[in-house]
Amino acid sequence: MAEEYKAPLPNPTPDSKPFWEGARRHELRLQRCRTCSEAYFYPRNVCPGCLSTDVEWFTASGRGTLHTFSIVHRGLKVTPLPMPYVLAVVELEEGPRMMTNLVGVPADPEHVRCDMPVVLEWADVTPEATLPRFRPA
């Protein structure tokens, strides 16, 4: 039997709820400003490019590159993956960056490179919460 998932989970707020509801459906929902066309993440009700409130949701491709990473060896009591694991910042092909985990590759700097292509993989970690993870493309 799988062990109970104990790592921190998000408590969505009104601005972020569409993102986390999209995650449950395995849709990567981002926002775009209708005024300046900037796509952005994390979710908010104003555009961080121009402060317009005229913003819309869209579904991203799930493709991107590994912008930077660290390999976590110790220091946490509860972790989303067994240590060592790759803490990652992915740059989505639509432009925004997001924190995530890189899976499907040894957690070793010999095997993980900045700018490597990556692709989204959803993780249904509890019946209520789904987290975006990425693996090498």
Partner: peptide, 13 residues
């Protein structure tokens, strides 16, 4: 919401 779930722990990570 957007960092803790991925295992950031303390500042070193």
């Amino acid at each position: 919401q957007f960092e803790m779930p991925f295992g950031i722990g303390g500042p070193p990570t």
